[in-house]
Design a protein around this nucleic acid. Sequence first.
DNA 1: CTGACGATTCACT
DNA 2: GTGAATCGTCAGC
Length: 211
Amino acid sequence: MLQINSLLSLPKLSTSFYRRDNVVLVARELIGKILVTRFNNQVTAGRIVETEAYNGIVDKASHAYGGRRTKRTEIMYADGGKAYVYLCYGIHHLFNVVTHLKNSPHAVLIRAVEPLVGIELMLQRTAKPKADFSLTKGPGNVSRALGISTQHTGVDLLEDALFIVTDNDDISQKKIIATPRIGVDYAGEDALLPYRFIVKDNPYVSGKKHA
DNA sequence: CTGACGATTCACT
DNA sequence: GTGAATCGTCAGC
């Protein structure tokens, strides 16, 4: 098990990582990175094993499609490297990483992680009796386990509460698979785009098939 | 002001 | 496989 001290000594992803213009590339490269929360000095972390890219104003699946700009989605229009957290179905808090530059609203949804640090705290937050693969499977569960909620929307990922680090133990490229995104049937032909990335055969990846 | 609905999850058949 | 839970957001009136 990764120790907290070594985890916190790992380098954060930089603004230059987040601000690149290809959100699909960023989504792919976020696979294998480690998402960390440190709220009230309590640390939880997990390795990212499933992501989805939302490709700006031309993507019918994105909240920013057509340049739609509302109070909720305003943070998507910020410079890359911020958190976008919104409430879905009145229950689930979905965590996204804002990418690219100001006024270019791209984001990556973190859909699943593999727990690394703070599993006891994750069990507490999710009220689960013991750790199983559902602990951090699916975007709603990731946020519950890591303690992320809509109040964290706008948080700077270069600060120390909510951030992503790399341990250079990236997943083999052969194990990273692109698939269509989940739950975006409303997006017409854009629902078919291969903007979802998963680690092949990883048990924390959501959905029924692993392709 | 009102109504429809969702980048989901879970219990139940 | 099906359906309920649940509430902030957003478009429309």
